[in-house]
Design a protein around this nucleic acid. Structure first.
Lengths: 198, 198
DNA sequence: GTCTATAATCAGATAGAC
DNA sequence: GTCTATCTGATTATAGAC
């Protein structure tokens, strides 16, 4: 059982990486099998179809995302610091994002174009971030605006990721991250003594 | 010759649409041939390889983008209005973007993941927008900041497109577009009487 | 649980008739 | 310039031995 789980986990792990780097459709069973070091035949003992691997990969991403958000909550003292931690992802994962874009955004779009049934599950990873960010803004005292602010931070990050992938420009990423931090400063200041909404 | 050119144009047109809606790799010759109403064999009289069609599609996009930007320059009196016209694309093409994302961003990312030689040509479409936006900001009196502002507008739009595709939320798109217009207002006001940089 | 061998399908690409 | 017929290779998926 332990060996079986391990092989399954290795397959999901390799598929996760390959789906990210080369796309879901372009990644063949042979490539995953080679990465894990097993035969193609053995493969089907663990997953009957390619779609099943995709489901497994998305579930693994949901799991690791939840773990990461929980870690941020432990590490960072307050909600503002947690949002800033999120904003920094595009720098923390800068090299991967330059090469392959955001794993969430790019998979979601690929599945949308394939009209794939797992699309909604890929969107669920986005929803994890969205809800978590909304909760941070709520903890900062925002009520009706919290989801709007969460979506803005999410959208901003996606835009940075897409252009980082297109232009491979680390300075651009840093500038935009600084800009987003500045925007956050203003929202927090506005909320402390509100004058106008943006 | 007229018939030949027409068939070639029809192939590029159909491929352009299908590459956008279903992705480059997922689109088969059979699908393009069916869309145009010709046989697969005839296909190869016009394009020897699938990559050649991709080049043709990207060239068509470069051409139509240049035409669109030129049209905006004719239609809109000043550079500020032109930038706003760009910002509005995510609403003008709202339905397509909800379903398939931004054609430029999604193709660029797909080609990056495929490590495809035509990637740089896909990025050239981005560069067209970037340069054009930069020129508008330069016309508005910005000098060293012009490219930074252009990239910000571009990134913002990409972020909106990605989340529009993920969440299918038209109200979110409108809110973010309003926010970007607001940001532009501030930049223009700041530039007229500068106090701080953002 | 893992392997080799192989079936079934579909893709891109070619040859040659009209 | 367009067609039908076909080739070649890759991919998903299965069968069955160890």
């Amino acid at each position: 059982m332990a060996g079986s789980t391990s092989t399954r986990a290795q397959i999901v792990d390799a598929a996760n990486r390959l789906f990210y780097e080369h796309g879901f459709e372009h990644t063949s069973f042979a490539a995953i099998a080679e990465a894990v070091g097993i035969s193609r035949g053995n493969f089907y003992h663990h997953f009957k179809t390619k779609d099943e691997i995709l489901i497994g990969v998305i579930e693994a991403r949901l799991h690791s995302t939840r773990a990461m958000l929980a870690e941020w909550e432990r590490d960072e003292p307050g909600p503002a610091e947690r949002v800033r931690r999120f904003v920094e992802i595009v720098i923390t994962n800068g090299a991967d994002i330059e090469n392959y874009g955001c794993p969430v955004g790019t998979l979601t779009n690929e599945l949308a174009k394939l009209d794939h049934p797992a699309r909604s599950q890929a969107v669920a990873v986005f929803e994890l971030f969205r809800t978590w960010l909304r909760e941070q803004f709520e903890a900062l005292g925002f009520t009706v605006e919290a989801d709007d602010l969460a979506m803005h931070v999410l959208a901003f990050s996606q835009g940075i990721a897409t252009l980082s992938n297109a232009f491979h420009d680390g300075e651009f990423v840093q500038r935009e991250v600084d800009r987003l931090h500045g925007w956050l400063d203003e929202r927090l200041a506005d909320h402390a003594s509100p004058r106008s909404r943006r």
